[in-house]
Amino acid sequence: MNIYTGKFAGLDTTIHRWEPRAKFIGLMILIFSFSFINSLMLLPVMILISTLIFIASKLPFSFLLRRLSIPSFFVIAMGIFLIFFSKGTIMFKLGPLALKREGITAMILITVRFFCILTIIVTLFETTPFLTIIKVMNSLGIPSILTDMIMFTYRYIFLVIENLLNMQMAMRLRGFRNRNLKDIVCLSSLVGSLFIRSYEQSERIYYAMVLRGYEQSENIKEEYQFKKIDIVFTIAVVMIAVGMVSIQIYFNLGRV
C-alpha cells in the first residue's frame, strides 16, 4: 500500500511550476466551489475544468484511477442507496425496490462532485512535495501544532503499518488463524500493544525533538515569490470558481 504523495512532484509542467501558495489557495477555492454546486447543468463545466487541470499536470491516468479506486466503492454504495431509498417520484419499480428520479439526480451530483474534487486533490498533492504543502499551510496561518501533527502522521503512519504487519506475521507464525470469536481477544491485544508501542515511540520522538531545539524558536515562515503567470493563473481559477458559484446562486434564486 502506497500512501505517500508527491511521487510526480519532480515533473515540469504549468501546474508543477505554479507557485505553491497560489496553487494551494486557487485549487482549494475551486474545491469549495465544486462542493457548492447542486445543478446538473454545471456538472459538465466541473468535469471539463478538473479534466483540463489534470491533463495539464501530465500525471498518469492509471495513477489517478488507482487513487480513486478505494473511495469509489463508498461513493457507488452510497449512490445505490440514494437511488432506491430516497424520497421522490418513482420512475421504475422492481418488487419492493423503486427507482426514484430525485435519487438518480442526487447520485449523479454526488458522484461527479466527488470525482472532480478528488481529481483536483490528487493533482494538488501529487504536483507539490508534501513538505511544501505543510510549509504553505504554515505560511497561511494554520497553527504549527496542527501542521506538525499532519507531518508526523504522514511520517509515521507507514512505520505503524509496518509494525502491525510484523506483529500479524509473528502471530500467524505461531499458529494464529483468526477463525472464531475467541480470536478477537488476540486481535484486541495486538491493537493494544500497537498503541502502547506507538505511545512509547512518540515519547522518544518528543525527546529527540526537544534535544534539537523544538519549542525554542518560532517556525520560520517560508518566503514565496509570485510571478506574473502565477497571479494570472490563480485569478483565472478563482474567477471560474466564483463564476460557477454565482451561476449556482442564480439558479437557486430562479427556483424560488
Binding site: P129, L131, M151, Q201, I205, A208, L211
Partner: peptide, 16 residues
C-alpha cells in the same frame, strides 16, 4: 550537547 538515539526512526521525524 547532542544525542544520537538508539533507533534512528525516533530521530528522523521530518519528511525528508
Amino acid at each position: 550537547i547532542g544525542m544520537v538515539f538508539q533507533d534512528p526512526n525516533d530521530q528522523l521525524f521530518c519528511p525528508s
